[in-house]
Amino acid sequence: MVEILAIIRPNRLNDTKRKLKETGYPGFTCQRAMGRGKKPVSFLLADGSTIRTELVNKRVLNIIVPDEAENEVVKAIIEANSYGQPGDGKIFVCPIEKSYRVRTRKMAEDI
């Protein structure tokens, strides 16, 4: 199993959910987050002025999938979030050695 940690724009969450459902892996945990990349972010306001901010709203998704589903799920996340612009997001993949079901107190063999 692997954990896919995806940091995405908040407005792309619904498209990401739809894509994950289409891949057959609709289960995930989502958290609100604030952050930024290497450079501060500038926003163009409706009145034409620009503001610069250090932190922007993001969503962090944690998705646990079998090893063989990793590429398909990562591809779905990229398709739902790629504009080709800074701030599109970041995806990390980490191995999961063990998991346990709290209800049964036993090691989980499946996801």
Rank of each mutant, 00 (worst) to 15 (best):
I63V: 08
I63P: 02
G37K: 11
A6S: 07
T16E: 01
N62H: 12
K17E: 09
L20T: 03
K17M: 13
S99P: 03
L13A: 04
P26C: 09
Y100N: 04
L55F: 09
E3A: 08
N62M: 15
P66Y: 08
V93N: 09
L44C: 05
V56F: 05
T23F: 00
L45K: 13
N57C: 11
R18C: 11
L55K: 08
P26L: 13
K38H: 14
R9W: 04
G24K: 09
C30T: 14
I64S: 12
K17A: 05
R59A: 04
G27Q: 07
G89V: 10
L13H: 01
N81M: 02
V41I: 15
A76T: 03
V41D: 00
P95C: 12
R105T: 12
N81I: 01
L20Y: 03
T23K: 12
V73A: 06
I77F: 00
L20A: 05
V93T: 14
S49V: 06
Q85V: 14
S82P: 01
Q85T: 14
T29A: 13
R52E: 15
E72I: 14
V74E: 06
V41Q: 05
Q31E: 13
F92L: 15
S82Y: 10
I8G: 01
G84K: 12
N57D: 15
G48L: 05
I96E: 09
P86N: 06
F43Q: 02
R101C: 10
E68R: 13
I64N: 09
T23S: 06
V56W: 02
A33F: 06
A76Y: 00
F92C: 09
I7W: 01
P10I: 08
G89H: 00
M34N: 10
V2G: 04
T16V: 09
R52I: 14
D15K: 00
I8P: 00
